[in-house]
Structure formats: C-alpha cells, structure tokens
C-alpha cells in the first residue's frame, strides 16, 4: 500500500500562543508535530506493518506543508517509522487559509502519483477547523471518511467506525480515499533509539510550488478566500477566591452560586 499521512507543524499549546503580523497569522517559534497527527501516522504504520511493512513494498509518506521549521514534523514522523518524508515549502504559502492549504496539498498529493489512502488528523491544534480533510476530498474527488475511531482495509475498500452524539456509524468506501482519524483510534508510539537512527538514513524531498505546478497567486495571502481583519488577545483568566474545605465548603459553594445568581 502507498499511504500519505498529512502532518502539520503547529505551535506547542503548552506555551502561550500568539497571532501577529499583518495577516494575524500564528507565531510558529515553539512548534512541534501536531499531536493529533501522531494518531494519523500510527494508523498508517499499523496498516503498513500488517501488510509486511516496507520490505513488502508498503510506503508511508509523511507530507507537511509549512515554513522551514516544518521539516521537524517530517523528521519526527520518520523517527516514528514513516518510510519517506516530503516537505512542501515556499515563501508564497505564508498566510494560506484552509482553501489555499487544501489546494497546495492536493497538488502535492497528485505529484506523488497514485496513492491508496491519505490519512490526516481530526483537526490541526492551531487552526482547529477540520476543514482541510473535507476540502482535500472535494478537490481530489475522493470519498471522505472523517473522524474515524477505527479503520480496517481489505480488498480495495475500507471500513471505519464513527461516533456521533446521537449515534455510531459504520461506513465503507472504495480506495483511494481520504480518512481523518480521532484520538480514540490508537495509542501513538514513541520514536525509539532504532527509529531515530534509521530516520537519519531516510530521505526528505523538498517541494516548491513550481514543482507541484501551483502558481504563487493561488495560495498564501493572495490566494486565500478569507482574511483575518483584526485579532485581539483576550485578557488571560485570573484566579478568583480559593478556599480550603473545613467541612462546609459545599454550603459555601452554594452561597457563591447564589451570590452570582447562578442557582
């Protein structure tokens, strides 16, 4: 099987995150591989391993679009076990919204030739829109299976489970398809020593917009269909009253709610 996994390099949520510059884009200084994309990578690795791994010709290609630092998301994916890495980077991509991102990623995926499966995370931890997988499916004309909490592939088609609020669904789609997976699907592995050493020998291809046949005005600030006109940081929440229970904290809690007219 040939599987492409989309991995995004995002600001680490453990630190304060900021929007800045003319286009109010996210500051990417302290960035990591989006933790939700690790589930996508793990799902791909399990499918490849169940079919004999790379020795049997199975490919797991980690693809990231982003500035120079995004190569780290690709490197981490290689350490976890991806067989190849692709870094799509170009100055003109800066400021891309979901529509422009999906346009560039769709072109990059086409550039990689015939693939069986594209797997993504359920959402990027910075944009949090979950738009990219659905837009990619529309652009590539592939069936979309989003929010999969389980995934099986057999005989040219896939079966997945999705949990919605009022029901659980089983869905089927022919390959090739696009699947986004939730954090319920598996437990992502940590790169081990062997993986880290092996990653050093794996190649990372760098692609520019010219390589994938996209013109600069189709992406970035110029090609995006939306614009952020203003951004204001909310004052951080501050701690209020903290009390220690002396046997009557439940009553004091109700007094607080009554005073706030919340009862």
């Amino acid at each position: 099987m040939k599987i492409v996994v989309l991995v995004k390099h995002v600001p680490d949520a453990q630190f304060d995150r900021h929007l800045n510059g003319e286009g109010n884009t996210t500051d990417r200084d302290e960035s990591i591989l989006s933790e939700l994309d690790e589930y996508a990578l793990e799902a791909a690795l399990q499918l490849a391993e169940a079919r004999g791994g790379s020795k049997a010709g199975n490919q797991v290609i980690a693809l990231s679009m982003g500035p120079s630092g995004a190569v780290n998301a690709v490197k981490k994916s290689l350490q976890m076990g991806a067989t190849e890495g692709v870094h799509l980077t170009d100055d003109a991509l800066a400021g891309s919204d979901a529509a422009a991102t999906s346009l560039a990623l769709a072109a990059a995926i086409r550039h990689l030739g015939q693939v069986d499966l594209v797997i993504t995370g359920m959402a990027s931890t910075d944009g949090e829109t979950s738009l990219v997988p659905a837009q990619l499916a529309e652009r590539l004309g592939l069936p979309q299976v989003t929010f999969a909490s389980s995934l099986e592939v057999a005989g040219g088609s896939l079966t997945a489970r999705r949990d919605a609020d009022t029901s659980s669904e089983t869905v089927e789609a022919p390959l090739p398809a696009i699947v986004s997976v939730t954090d319920q699907i598996n437990e992502p592995r940590y790169p081990n020593f062997k993986g880290i050493i092996a990653a050093k020998r794996k190649s990372i291809a760098t692609l520019s917009l010219a390589d994938i046949g996209v013109s600069p005005d189709q992406v970035g600030f110029a090609g995006s269909w939306t614009t952020v006109t203003s951004a204001e940081e909310r004052p951080p929440r501050t701690a209020g009253t903290i009390i220690t229970d002396e046997g009557d904290a439940g009553i004091k809690l109700v007094d607080f709610l009554a005073a706030q007219k919340l009862l």
Partner: peptide, 16 residues
Amino acid sequence: KSVLAGSYTTACKAKT
C-alpha cells in the same frame, strides 16, 4: 470568532 482555545477574538471576512 475566537481562536487558539479562546485566547484571541478575531474578525474575519470572505474575499469571495
């Protein structure tokens, strides 16, 4: 809308 887990409020517009 608010973004980055509620830490920013933003105004956005479609150009289309």
